[in-house]
Simulated scan of single mutants.
Amino acid sequence: MIRLANPSDLDAIAEIYEEILAAEDARPASYTNWQRGKYPTRDTAEAALEAGTLWVGEEDGAVYGCVNLNGEQLPEYDAIPWSIPAQPSEVGVIHTLVIRPSWSGRGKAREFVAFCEEELRRQGKKAVRLDTYEGNFPANTMYPRLGYRLAGATEFFFQGFIHEVLNCYEKQL
């Protein structure tokens, strides 16, 4: 089940972030380009929780993933040649979609994306957008398979401390 997060979920979400960062440390190349202690953190999740935009996936009492789903488009999105005409208020954005590494391969990321699309349709949005690190092979493979179009890539100064190139995707709802 995917549901709105509550304060009692924050510890599990912080654990997921840490598990992902530990898995990144064990790989020769990073999929996320995230940095421990900077992004994502418990504070990242807490801010989304307070905004009412943090959703968690839970099964048998275990939180296996989360996403921040809102309409916030980073300033760098202005450099992307989006093809789906939509006013900012008509766009939903998927941020920081994460699945606990021990749950990978079970289709949970695809379930989250389908949930996000349905929730954004319910909110009356016309398009969904997202960005992901250019080296994130799993995400850059999954989104096109789910009907997302690579709209472009640009350098982001993410969170004010990470210079990186992010691929930006879109899908009409």
Rank of each mutant, 00 (worst) to 15 (best):
E90S: 07
L4Q: 12
P101T: 01
V56A: 03
L173N: 03
G160K: 05
M142Q: 09
G152Y: 05
K108A: 09
L54Q: 06
G65P: 13
F156C: 07
A29F: 02
A153L: 08
E119Q: 13
I99A: 06
V56C: 08
T132V: 03
N33R: 12
I2Y: 06
S104D: 13
E59H: 13
Y39W: 13
W34P: 00
E76C: 11
G107H: 05
G107V: 08
E46P: 09
R27T: 06
P75R: 07
Y133A: 12
Y77H: 14
N6F: 01
P101H: 02
A86N: 10
L4W: 00
F112Q: 08
E59D: 13
L21T: 05
L130Y: 13
D9Q: 11
S104P: 00
A109Q: 04
E76M: 10
F158T: 04
P144W: 11
L49P: 14
T32A: 02
S30V: 07
L146R: 02
A109T: 06
P85H: 08
A29C: 02
D11L: 09
A26V: 02
L97S: 04
T96L: 13
P75Y: 03
A151Q: 12
N167A: 07
D78N: 14
N70L: 10
L97R: 12
L173H: 02
L130R: 15
I2D: 09
L166S: 04
R149S: 14
T41K: 00
E72H: 14
Q159E: 14
G160H: 00
D11W: 01
I20W: 13
D25E: 15
W55L: 01
W34C: 00
Y143M: 06
E72T: 13
Q172Y: 03
L74Q: 14
M1K: 10
A153C: 08
D9K: 14
W103L: 01
N6S: 12
I94F: 04
A127H: 01
T41G: 04
R122Y: 05
M142A: 15
N68V: 01
V98W: 08
F156I: 10
H95E: 10
R145P: 01
D78F: 06
L74D: 15
D78S: 15
R27N: 04
S30G: 10
A79Y: 14
P88V: 00
Y143N: 00
A79L: 14
G107Y: 10
F137S: 12
D78P: 08
Q172F: 00
R36C: 09
N70Q: 11
A47P: 04
P88G: 10
N136Y: 05
R36V: 07
A5R: 04
T53G: 12
E76T: 12
V128P: 05
S102T: 15
I84W: 05
L10Y: 12
K126I: 01
D78K: 15
P81H: 13
E72S: 04
Y64A: 07
L166V: 03
L69K: 13
I13W: 03
N33E: 13
K38P: 02
A22F: 07
A62N: 07
A139S: 15
P75E: 11
E164K: 05
